[in-house]
Design a protein around this nucleic acid. Sequence first.
DNA 1: TATTAGCACTCCTGATGGTTGAGTGCCAAG
DNA 2: CTTGGCACTCAACCATCAGGAGTGCTAATA
Lengths: 342, 342
Amino acid sequence: MMAMDERARHLLKSLIEQHIANGVPVGSRQLAKGAGLNISPATVRNVMADLEDEGYLISPHTSAGRIPTPVGYRFFVDALLRVVPLSPESHQLLIHRLGHYIPDTEQVLHAATEVLSELTHMAGFVRVPRRANRTLRHVDFLALREKEVLAIFVTDKGDVENRLIRTEHALSAAELNQAANFFNESYGGRPLQEVIQHLQRDLQQSRHEMDRILRSAMELGEEMLEEDQQRMLIEGEFQLLDLPELAGSERLRKLLNAVRQKRDLVHLLDSSMRSSEVRLFIGEESGFAPLSDCSVVSAPYVVDGEVLGVLGVIGPMRMPYQQIIPLVDGTAHLLGRALSQS
Amino acid sequence: MMAMDERARHLLKSLIEQHIANGVPVGSRQLAKGAGLNISPATVRNVMADLEDEGYLISPHTSAGRIPTPVGYRFFVDALLRVVPLSPESHQLLIHRLGHYIPDTEQVLHAATEVLSELTHMAGFVRVPRRANRTLRHVDFLALREKEVLAIFVTDKGDVENRLIRTEHALSAAELNQAANFFNESYGGRPLQEVIQHLQRDLQQSRHEMDRILRSAMELGEEMLEEDQQRMLIEGEFQLLDLPELAGSERLRKLLNAVRQKRDLVHLLDSSMRSSEVRLFIGEESGFAPLSDCSVVSAPYVVDGEVLGVLGVIGPMRMPYQQIIPLVDGTAHLLGRALSQS
DNA sequence: TATTAGCACTCCTGATGGTTGAGTGCCAAG
DNA sequence: CTTGGCACTCAACCATCAGGAGTGCTAATA
């Protein structure tokens, strides 16, 4: 496999751009014209044949022009792509949706998901912040009824989570108050993680009724950390229905169901939290079968110097990367900013 | 339009059953055989022609047998349908999923949605309980940060809702406590509706800082009532992708997007809360364009003698009503029971 | 030596047309 | 009123064909 010369690179770039724009295989004649070089179709054919040998292109059938392979796309984005700045309109819209103060975290995340989906006409997602390092702000225990206690947790960022706890005996409001006070005094301001560890240790042996409540509360705290490992917002999956290349409905159904299940996707994305840049998964690179016809563009978002989560879009391999990349990047930045205010 | 004789009714019933089973138009030969009557195809043809004249059947094209019209389905379910009891397996599964105690309301509702979707292979939905008549249990105000207060509402059934409120001046924990105490004492145990009305009146003129918090809290309460008008769970929309009759993807996309938007659907269903029985909307009867190819089977669920919400399924007109109806009915009953325990 | 024109070949696409089979409507006989 | 018979219709299937786009190869060219 020999290195590509300048002309071959240019042709590959031009071919992929054309294919992204039209979605149909590109032939030598059309490419010769579109590339701007003064070159005959025959020459182009030679070059294309070489590129096919090297794995960048493939023809769907004998006489149908050529389309990029995943390898071709990969080379394209790594070596050929020139990212264009965000269009003023898109930027405008981004600012409009994410630029001003929104007090509710949940709302901000939704806004980000929506705006991604809207601007790209593909599926947008936001992986929600891990709360692992959040600290416990406040706990409340309310006797809802005989033998049922409602526990409410509040973290320093204002996340609220609640859960019903059944007790064996009825507990008075005073007792619950006392438990809450104990909890708040001992653990208020401490990281959730730590609170749970402490509780786990302290409650090992004791079997008092009141301790049962604390233990349940601890479980709730654990759930807040756990559940959250899975959380993810997705918007606009249905935009994918419009893609002709995914029209074979069997395939698409699999994908949509997979998106629904989200778990594996979460897995994939967590791996990309480590990078601090926009990341691209093209086709099989995601290592996630139902996505093998698609690309994923993701970027982590950062609040106060710390990566909180990932966001991005899912779409066909043939997506306008030059625009998607800055868009995802920009959204990530704005989301980071929006969240750092809250 | 003359009344149908016994034989015609039998044939119509048989035809619709066959069509529900196979999804293809039914011809005279097949119907003659399937109906069990000793009758020739020619006779059947005469009857079918009559049924077509009267609007119960239609042929997709000249020589393709006949399929039921919405009118046909309507007549079928009203006059011909014999509902079969829930199959033991389905009943088993229902009990298993909804029969035992689950403390968390949200979880119960989800379980109901899921089980509907699973057993029918169609889209299942649950319209969530209105909280209008719930009473206020407890309110908390927490100073989250300078000039930001987190308000937490708890209703008597353990629903928790929260919201960030920005204030103009910083407020001390003591002040907030005082406000919360005031709130709890004045309004604890009162219906939310009433609380809001009172607040609305009491706060009309005053402009104190603390009142601003109360006013924001009132808005939150209003939101709890409002937002909730829209809430709805849907599960298994993707099952609809499997239906050949909806395969024309354009149409389906519209439907799925509509389902996504839920609003109009909520509207439709609220109207069916008034009935205390299973209700059927066939095709256009729903008055909701994207659903015109579909039927909706819904039933209200009742807790302590009061209708809390609606649940049901969305599927093709050609659905096995004899089984779907008791299933929806049974699910509604079980959900009512499950909720009355909590 | 790299480029290009020419040419034969492949294969998709869309149009055409014939055949088949399911199904109908109608009529005349039972 | 029912039924067998019959002509007719129409979608679905299949084969065929022409057209066009595109290719690979070869030989001429700059």
